[in-house]
Design a protein around this nucleic acid. Structure first.
Lengths: 355, 355
DNA sequence: ATCACGACTGGGAGCGCTCCCACCGTACTG
DNA sequence: CAGTACGGTGGGAGCGCTCCCAGTCGTGAT
């Protein structure tokens, strides 16, 4: 009576498909998994049976027998509220999802709230619940990437922690993006271009500041540290930084902000100070978020190819999982403790009325 | 030596824990799953062994043997770009994740890209062995919820499709939110309050328009259909709708928009028309998104308790899965045509300078 | 002391799949 | 014409767990 599964009422099993096709279990498995060691005739026989029965392999059984999971985890530290307010996260998600779909991989989403959860997460992984991990928004001091490395779990970071990142990663060209913003500003005749940089313990902030400096130097402008202020990627930080800048260099005629949110803060402060945008001061942000489009005036900003980054992350991870050497990485190899494969995607300046 | 599992080298199994604790496999299982039919002494013995060995149950094995998955899927139609541009989605995600964490459930994220994928989705679910499904942003004509119902897969919707929604859902009080916005506007002396409603094939748009109408009526204002325009929740739609309104009722002194994005479009058009906000025309949006905070002037908007909605969805789903609602709950069966359990959470008006 | 009856406990029987080895026939080879 | 490769195939042996049925043991009633 109560034989058979209770829920999902009797989906066909491998064995049933085999019986129907008049072959053995092993053969069906081979067909399902695309093994070449099956004759064409048998293959189509099996495929017919699969179609007839509407057979779909049972993931749990597969995972158990195959010692794998067909699942990758996307790990997000929830403390990163910044992340959540932006389309950034959604874009990554989208790209990852698209990149994974081609491989019939599931996407497990893990928000890490507390350090307790972080510890528990290692156990999760240990229990073989995922074949690989994608890490979003890792800080320089995050032990997770290295932990994963030690456990030999394929990992890909979104953005590197330091210049010499060893774990495979996908990043956007932050330095280049900042440079293009500066070239744009300088090209339009701005002489005193200030910048509101992010906190330097974040590598991404470092890069953007670097791009700023390089462009200033390349243009032959004097390098003036008084034109550099730091924010914490928040609006309030942007406001504070702009007040500093205005105090130190009242004659500045352009500000490059390391994020749109800080630019929004800067804009408010500029208006308060009676400066017109872009007439008196040109403003450029970074991220090309919704804020940029809706700001008044609309904000020129550096766009990252977010969705592509997600897709690239999925690709890099799959390459690791399937063990391919993968010709995707331009220079680096994951061979011998050297830098793993990585991708740095180009950014693009989106010009709007603020500059 | 190299015997045992190939990857993640030999995590302890139930059997090993049993051996160490000097008990049987079944007993360990009982302890792990919190069965009461274990003596206190044995329990602590087992717990000690679990701790010593760092045992973590293998999900795949559990899923296979127990015919369940300890996993729920969050399904998002990717066509809803609107969803992705907003913190809405992230908020839901956050709430769901939090609500699920208490139950040790995994969150599987599924973006549905094409209608082909949508059709295959049933198989997908069956094969992937999901214990329940959370559906975000379902349209009125979406067959998925009913399909899931027929397959007896626990489901919770985010927002209902129609007034008489049969599938369990969590929604916010859209009608009430619109009402509070209108009361606010009318309370501040606005006489000709227009609205930019959403497309009426979306129930949420219906509700917000309803709230508008009810409040207008309650205030004793004349019901003027010329004060109602429709947008499609996009910025351009908002612009177009506002132009219509301005043509029909040049003397309007307030606009309630069914979304912040449409409000952003309306704002641009108002400015183009030389109307000052809020002096000439007060503007109120819905969603309290990032745009609202950064708009110029900052936009008064109706906030939904997004994260709580996510949490509530998780809770409702878990109740279904564990069977708490499956006979004892309020009209649990959706198959019988009764309304399933649901929750409608209150909204809150966030006042800013635009009104 | 005997019996019945719970409270606990051990372990067999799978869940549906992959892995892998033995095996089959056939087409070559020497 | 035996010998030797193979491409191709069937099915046994688990993967680590849950379910469930027999025990085993104490206890109270008779």
């Amino acid at each position: 009576m109560a034989s058979g599964g209770r829920r999902g009422g009797g989906r066909p099993t491998l064995e049933e498909v085999a019986a129907r096709a008049g072959v053995g279990r092993g053969t069906v498995s081979r067909v399902i998994n695309g093994s070449p060691r099956v004759s064409e005739r048998t293959r189509s026989l099996v495929q017919q049976a699969v179609a007839d029965l509407g057979y779909v392999p049972n993931r749990a059984a597969r995972a158990l027998a195959g010692n794998r999971a067909d699942t990758v985890a996307l790990v997000v530290p929830e403390t990163e509220t910044r992340l959540f307010a932006e389309p950034y996260f959604s874009g990554i998600l989208r790209g990852v999802s698209a990149g994974l779909a081609d491989h019939d991989m599931q996407l497990l989403l893990t928000l890490i709230r507390t350090s307790k959860e972080r510890r528990r997460f290692a156990d999760y992984l240990a229990a073989h619940r995922v074949d690989g991990v994608l890490l979003v928004s890792v800080h320089g001091d995050d032990p997770l990437p290295d932990l994963l490395g030690r456990m030999a779990i394929p990992t890909v970071l979104n953005g590197r922690r330091t210049a010499g990142e060893l774990v495979p990663y996908v990043d956007s060209d932050n330095t280049g993006g900042a440079q293009s913003a500066l070239e744009h500003l300088i090209g339009r005749g701005r002489r005193q271009v200030a910048t509101i940089a992010g906190p330097l313990d974040m590598y991404v902030a470092h890069c953007r500041l670097d791009g700023y400096r390089q462009a200033v130097r390349a243009a032959g402008h004097p390098e003036d540290d008084a034109l550099v202020a730091h924010g914490d990627f928040t609006e309030e930080g942007g406001r504070r930084a702009l007040r500093e800048l205005l105090t130190r260099r009242p004659a500045l005629d352009a500000v490059f902000c390391a994020s749109d949110v800080m630019a929004a803060g800067a804009r408010q402060e500029l208006r308060t100070a009676g400066r017109r945008i872009p007439d008196d001061v040109a403003l450029v942000g970074f991220d090309d978020s919704a804020i940029a489009r809706h700001m008044d005036p609309p904000l020129t900003s550096v766009r990252q190819p977010i969705e592509e980054m997600g897709r690239a992350m999925a690709g890099l991870l799959m390459a690791q999982i399937t063990g391919e050497a993968e010709g995707g990485g331009p220079d680096a190899r994951s061979a011998t403790g050297q830098a793993g494969p990585h991708l740095v995607l180009p950014t693009e300046l989106v010009r709007r009325q603020s500059s």
